[in-house]
Nucleic acid binder design. Sequence first.
DNA 1: TGGTTGATAAACCTTATGGTTGAATAATGG
DNA 2: CCATTATTCAACCATAAGGTTTATCAACCA
Lengths: 126, 126
Amino acid sequence: MTERAVTEADLNRGFMALADPVRRHLIARLSRGPATVNELAEPFPISTQAISKHIQVLEQAGLVARTREAQRRPVHLVPERLEAMTAWIDRYRLVKESQFRNLDRLLDQDSTPGRDRAPDTRRRPS
Amino acid sequence: MTERAVTEADLNRGFMALADPVRRHLIARLSRGPATVNELAEPFPISTQAISKHIQVLEQAGLVARTREAQRRPVHLVPERLEAMTAWIDRYRLVKESQFRNLDRLLDQDSTPGRDRAPDTRRRPS
DNA sequence: TGGTTGATAAACCTTATGGTTGAATAATGG
DNA sequence: CCATTATTCAACCATAAGGTTTATCAACCA
């Protein structure tokens, strides 16, 4: 079924697509079923053209697809790319707190012999 | 435990942060343990200042945090925000194929489903 | 056929992003 | 103190992102 590998560019476009709140709302709406551009645009205070552009962004990210229904172009969700994105995140989100604890040791073996621990002199907020 | 709710702006910054391949590589590197800015910058063909800015983006997204170790500012991963992002995606990626099958029926009955609210998510003016 | 509906295209504007270089800041170690 | 190391700040530049408005395309229907 054309299981093309997810590229870096796919992740760029995928995460960029989800970085916009309008597009996240569109995803949420489409998770309840397909909708046309006008239907999707209705709740938003921006123009239909802007929504159309958002849908193009989602489509190029592989998150949605469009079909043809008379004059309308119903949009529906394509969940596979979302799965690939969670798969990416899940590789890195399972980090143990102990890695933070290893901080001093990791830095010590680098170059500096400073055994005395650093005082908590974080930069003063301006 | 400082369990502040994840806001829309948090998701904006979080997904935007992951939309850049350099920052994703930084996340991958940091998932293996903390590192300083110079260490993080070393594999990349761009300036250390650029990496520093990337780290600031990740920090403002809540994905990493910095401590102080002598002159160095070791960076470590903060996995909680990544978890929140997968949680967001997981709400919508579990879409049945049947929803696509319902396409024609949904469009025929001219229903405008789920008019819950109009989210005003316009880009904020300066 | 021609009008209406649904959606996109094109041109444009403003702001954000990601990079650069050069200078400044902070802490360490002679 | 002073030089060195690590990092950030500041100014600048090119391009992309998100919005607008106007115009165009495509398909239905009266």
